[in-house]
Simulated assay, not measured.
Amino acid sequence: MSRSVLVTGGNRGIGLAIAHAFAEAGDNVAVTYRSGDPPAGFLAVKCDITDAEQVEQAFKEIEEKQGPVEVLIANAGVNRDQLLLRMSEEDFTSVLETNLTGTFRMVKRASRQMLRARKGRIVLLSSVVGLLGSAGQANYAASKAGLVGFARSLARELGSRGITCNVVAPGFVDTDMTRALNDEQRSGILQQVPLGRYAEPEEVAATVRFLSSEEAAYITGAVIPVDGGLGMGH
């Protein structure tokens, strides 16, 4: 039975792969995007998740066109890498505002209808960096680590209503962002990954799709790494 699915930041990279995975399984998929071109084949809604009014309007449009959101995938995120002593307060707060507070806005709005329906699936996209830490990414790591505590609190708060909340923590994924690295940087990264390769976006999407399925109905508050072994033990 098709469900109403929302993927934030679903116009490229991991988000787009996730949107395709749900659509291929027969779900009705909406995606939010902040800039660039909307992806074809989905209900594409322009939305800056740092703006509460845009979030409200996006949900109203989605609810009108494909029904209340039953599955929320909070994938939208940004990074502004800089070493601590060079990192401005704007560098720090803007990343948290999108990655953590923006996710809070989306989850809060989606959970309203999920609570009424007494069912729902929420998956938050964190990062191996949120577990391991990374020099020059204190802001990004803090935002992604915050998602873990947020999700586990929601798992306890919403579980009695049949709503699960889990986290997927990708490692290095073969996207436009990592393709922009030079050969030396790419080689250095791969030396740290036991499987010796980057993840494909579709591998992350498959894990997200599983956590949103009936087969995963008894999994909540989990942090699932898709990182080739990079973050083992964290």
Score class of each variant (00 low, 15 high):
F59C: 02
A30G: 06
E90W: 03
E61Y: 02
D48Q: 13
G221R: 15
A222W: 11
D48L: 12
Y198R: 08
S160P: 10
F92S: 01
A135V: 15
G77M: 08
S134F: 03
F210G: 06
R152C: 07
M177C: 13
I219D: 04
D37I: 00
R179P: 10
F92L: 09
V55S: 07
V167G: 11
E70A: 09
A40I: 01
I73N: 08
F42G: 12
D37N: 11
C47L: 10
G10S: 07
G231K: 07
C47M: 15
V95D: 08
A206K: 14
V173H: 02
Y198Q: 01
T50L: 00
R105D: 03
R12P: 00
S94P: 03
C47N: 11
T101F: 11
T32W: 02
E89W: 04
V223P: 03
K60D: 15
A199K: 02
V148S: 01
R209A: 15
V148H: 06
M87I: 06
H20M: 08
V29K: 00
A25S: 15
K60F: 07
E56W: 03
V31P: 01
G102M: 10
A180Y: 09
G36W: 14
V107L: 08
K65G: 02
N28D: 10
E61M: 05
G231Y: 10
G146Y: 09
G102R: 05
A58D: 11
V107S: 06
S111W: 05
T220P: 15
F210K: 05
G146H: 07
E202G: 09
R197S: 00
A145G: 12
S134L: 10
Q113P: 01
D227V: 07
F210M: 09
I163G: 13
D48C: 12
K108M: 04
R161P: 00
V123Q: 00
R161Q: 09
G231A: 14
L195T: 12
Q57K: 14
P68A: 15
Q137G: 05
P201E: 10
E184Y: 13
P39H: 08
G196Y: 05
L131C: 10
Q57R: 15
E64F: 03
A145K: 00
L72R: 03
G171P: 13
D176L: 13
G171K: 07
A206R: 15
G41Y: 11
F42E: 06
L211M: 06
Q113A: 15
G67F: 04
Y33F: 15
